[in-house]
Design a binder for these strands. Structure first.
Lengths: 202, 202
DNA sequence: GACTACATACCAACTGGTCGGTTTTTCTTT
DNA sequence: AAAGAAAAACCGACCAGTTGGTATGTAGTC
């Protein structure tokens, strides 16, 4: 028989609920009461697992968002030698996800949302979020280098510059889609990303 | 002798204070008490000039932010026939501004901040902000068309696609600078923007 | 018996917003 | 031009509801 109390599952449920609410709304705009209600637990449980609301936010970044970055970008690119095609494939995957589920369209990228909201207000948040961006950028940078070596990317492309530029472009695009909320706009933005990637082809 | 009461100036002071606080922090994270204190007025005055906090936010968008977009982008580009150079000049102007004043570096773009925070939560905000983005994009689109006609931009560039892509890229870059907060990162991002603009040269 | 994992009642501080009152400005009437 | 009425501009105490967080108690686990 399973034990009545499963602290690890409780903790994970709190984290996931928090991410969901931070994603749909904002960190500051989400109350701990909301998190507690939606997670079906109590305030005692939340403050037992996390020192405070900020610490909960840090854990969401360090654990959940890091996992998403690794899953969506680092792993798929880790063995890439044709990064321009592989990046486009990942982006097309997101587009298909968006076509099915309105949440990503309406709520944008949780990493970007948290960054834009919190980096000016809390340095602990900023540095943790920056770490994730560096991991994301380095995955692209490494793939671009491999692409150059394999002759699939123009030799004069600067992998450091373009990895950071591509991340900025992607976050910007997701943000614009969030404001526009139309399929048409998504297709236009997709064409723009493709144009930028194509400009790096040999 | 000047009259004791100057309702238009009071109203403008409220708007400017609100924008400053929304820019440094967030809309939801800024209380009307803060606005009232910093503006040196009272709650009565604020709620006399604006129906509520949301209406104040709408007015900030419709009046102040629209002015900034026109001043920084629409007017400088209105007569451009060499948009790639003129865009780079505007962006370099921002960079110089950033080197002097840390506020833009740390707080990002007020239009982007408000958009990312509020578009998922309030459709009135979203549509007003979207209007500003359309004005910004159309200014770039028109300049790109003029650039193609003048032979300063490659003929196969799609002005609609690239205007939206450039706006997304710029907002993404400002967002990344906000998270990084280093001069070094700013230079790298600047090089990336230049690369994208250069790829449109004939 | 000790410790972890919760539950619940509670708290001071703050939230956006209201309301009655006062002062200043403007409009109307003579 | 003077007087009076109406409206606009502003003040500040007050409100109900919510905020993040705590203190105390209790039940399950090792």
């Amino acid at each position: 028989m399973a034990p009545v109390r499963q602290p690890e599952e409780t903790r994970m449920k709190i984290l996931e609920t928090a991410l969901d609410l931070f994603h749909r709304g904002t960190f500051k705009g989400t109350s701990v009461n909301q998190i507690v209600d939606q997670a079906g637990i109590t305030k005692g449980a939340l403050f037992h697992h996390f020192k405070g609301k900020n610490e909960l936010g840090y854990a969401v970044v360090d654990e959940l968002l890091l996992g998403h970055v690794n899953e969506a970008w680092v792993e798929p690119l880790s063995t890439s030698v044709d990064p321009l095609s592989d990046l486009m494939a990942i982006i097309n995957g997101f587009r298909e996800e968006m076509e099915e589920c309105a949440e990503v369209v309406e709520c944008g990228c949780p990493l970007n949302n948290l960054s834009q909201e919190m980096s000016a207000l809390d340095d602990e948040f900023r540095l943790r979020l920056l770490k994730l961006y560096n991991i994301w950028e380095e995955a692209i940078e490494k793939a671009l280098r491999a692409g150059i070596d394999a002759g699939n990317v123009k030799a004069d492309v600067d992998p450091l510059v373009m990895s950071k530029t591509l991340v900025a472009l992607l976050e910007g695009c997701i943000g614009m889609i969030k404001v526009n909320r139309t399929m048409e706009h998504m297709m236009i933005i997709g064409a723009g990303i493709r144009t930028v990637l194509d400009s790096m082809k040999p």
